[in-house]
Amino acid sequence: MKIKKLAAILVSTLVCAAMLTGCAGGNSGSSGNSGGLIKVGIINNDPNESGYRTANDKDLKEAFSKENGFDASFAYSLKNDEQITYAQKFIQDEVDYLLLSAADTAGWDGVLKEAQDAGVKVILFDRTVDADESLYEASIVSDMEKEGQTAVDWLKNQNLDKYEVIHIQGVMGSAAQKGRSGALDAAAQEDSSKWSIVAQQTAEWNAEKAQQIVQSVIDSGKSFNVIYAENDDMAKGAVAALDKANISHGVGKDVIVMGFDCNKWALEELLKQNWNYDGQCNPFQSEYIREVIQKLENGEKLDQKTIIMNEKGFDASTITQEDVDKYGI
């Protein structure tokens, strides 16, 4: 009996607290609006997910600050249904713009329609959704195929006599894996007299697994001269295996090491010429988003809905300290 009462009190306090915080959130939102700020609701994936996401979140927070004329609210989730709930809340709060990096591509039609009816403009960033183009203003994305192609083009320009590649893949089926694998597979098929894939295996973005895979190639005594790892962590694991076996790597050495994502520490490895190439996956979408918002606010029309970001590839022989500071995440 006592416990039941206690539980009842506890629950009611919790409900009250939840309502209070809910009110508080709403209040601060409406007061911001009256100050002439542009009100944006930003739905993103969990910033702890990866270094990429952390950089992405930091960039957005800096760009959509009060000083820059924005009143931004943030919501994070890796789950689609939670993100949809947040979106509905933002629509009720009457935000001007809804910025969305969807956890999953499906299931967004309904809520995007709601947004349209309420006059909320939707801008997708980082990831697209399976919804009609008329439901959003713009979609700002990375082109993973292009990232892979840039890297493979760079590799082709090295003019090696033969390319014996260890290909370490990310989680199979992810957009980054498909894009980055596709370009290499195509190159290997195109010129099979010069190119061969010595080993192709998924390390699921994991450094230690990459280390084991490269170790197993070394143990079986096969020769190779390129390591194409689909992210920096895996390139690092691969290099650990090379060091163990005393195989030299980097600029002008036996094995070419390639990574992706431009982590700061990875670019530092490039600067030390221990690695050869690092491809960017640009997390800095805020300037593109702000440009879009600027145009929409001025009543201009956008040239195209899908905006593909510029992404660089860094070569160890040309990279500078400034690049490391500017593009490292």
Binding site: E49, S50, G51, W205, N206, A207, E208, K236
Partner: peptide, 16 residues
Amino acid sequence: IKVSRISTINYSVVAK
């Protein structure tokens, strides 16, 4: 052992 192997950590994939 795990963090010593690569002298760093990646929270989302270490010992996955």
